[in-house]
Design a protein around this nucleic acid. Structure first.
Lengths: 217, 217
DNA sequence: CTGTGACTGTCGACCGTTTGGTAGGCTTTT
DNA sequence: AAAAGCCTACCAAACGGTCGACAGTCACAG
């Protein structure tokens, strides 16, 4: 437990804040700590320390450590999915929509690096039921990508011999991997990454004719 | 600790095996347990239980829990890197080599799902120094892919406006993501996945002329 | 063929620390 | 005076790790 100084240190920091404000801080700090140490490697002590409160006090806000991870993850997931879903309904053909989805997804990942990393990396620390509660029984993200690929095939824009599930997983792989190497202020901007990845993805699945049409525009 | 029955149960399983054999078992079991529970989530007790021995006995083989993870990870990594490196020197042009690398990488991942997953997922549980000891100071995998892309550009086969690092990361992303969804006996075979991913990747980075040449072959 | 001693692999009990979690009381705000 | 926010003090369990004891195995001497 190791309280800094059980004896002499009376109510040291102990700032009192309204519930909502503290809750926001809690989520933020927990996200950061889970990011740095992983869910199992992080202790409630770590989180409490950084908030300037005692471990026991956390239970005024949460019911369990697991709940905390759940809240962190489900928040990012909801947000990310909203971005992707809205982009998938943008005006234009399937390929324009796919491009928009990829760019949006990548940019959102880069701008929310820490929460996204926790989502992608620590989801497996949740028990299956709670995982499903977040993802839906069918993987939602995957579905958006796959649908767009299928629409592209229906319109003759995407190679017909391609398995749409595989294509979706491939694209999702390259975009989801971004959280492993992107660093803000690094060589690339989120927009650059999004744009180039979208371009590669679309060229990867398009028919030759589609590519020529796009080139001559 | 909870020994099954400290009193009555004399040497229960306690099979005695030669060092090498046990070591192999240990690595295998540890890999599996790390896969299922994650490094921090797994306890030496879990591993010992599955080996039919006591926790303390593990220290006849290892110096620390961390060493165990290190050994598990560095083994897969060495193997995987060897596959990729050898494939990168296959006869043919840069694109043929890239295709071979991607196929080899994906197939190796699928056929060594569990160790690969531990490598990709738990590497971050190692302290930085030991991580570098495995990866080399420059990320080796990434280098192989990037080099091939650059060679492709030099030969005019790959779009010149593409950043080779970004292209490498994109390809590596889609292939490394495979460990998250592939299941043996599922819809796709490793060969299928490797082939389709290679095709998508190459089309994604190639110039229009290259694609037409390939199509007319 | 037997006796002996060194070695090897495992046990069993233990240590100090940390963990997630609980309960009741104190203080500040409303 | 009630409610909200946080602290103190505690718990049982689990963790990684240590260490002396000891049984089974094997090589070799007699």
């Amino acid at each position: 437990m190791r309280q800094p100084a059980g004896r002499s240190a009376r109510r040291s920091g102990g700032e009192r804040k309204p519930r909502e404000e503290r809750w926001a801080e809690l989520i933020e700090v927990a996200t950061q700590v889970f990011y740095e140490k992983g869910y199992d490697g992080a202790s409630l002590q770590d989180i409490a320390d950084r908030l300037g409160m005692l471990k026991g006090s956390l239970y005024y806000y949460i019911q369990s450590k697991e709940d905390l991870l759940f809240d962190v993850i489900s928040a990012v997931h909801k947000e990310g999915l909203a971005v992707v879903r809205s982009r998938s309904e943008v005006p234009g053909g399937p390929l324009e929509r796919l491009e928009s989805v990829i760019r949006g997804h990548v940019e959102h990942t880069c701008r929310n690096l820490v929460p996204t990393a926790v989502f992608l990396h620590e989801l497996s620390a949740l028990p299956v039921e709670r995982r499903k509660e977040i993802l839906g029984s069918e993987h939602a993200y995957q579905g958006v990508f796959r649908d767009l690929v299928e629409q592209g095939q229906a319109a003759g824009l995407v190679r017909a011999d391609l398995d749409p599930r595989l294509a979706a997983l491939s694209i999702l792989g390259s975009t989801n991997w971004v959280y492993r190497w992107f660093r803000p202020g690094g060589t690339f901007t989120p927009e650059q990454i999004g744009a180039e990845m979208a371009e590669m993805a679309i060229r990867g699945i398009a028919t030759e004719e589609t590519l020529q049409d796009r080139a001559s525009r």
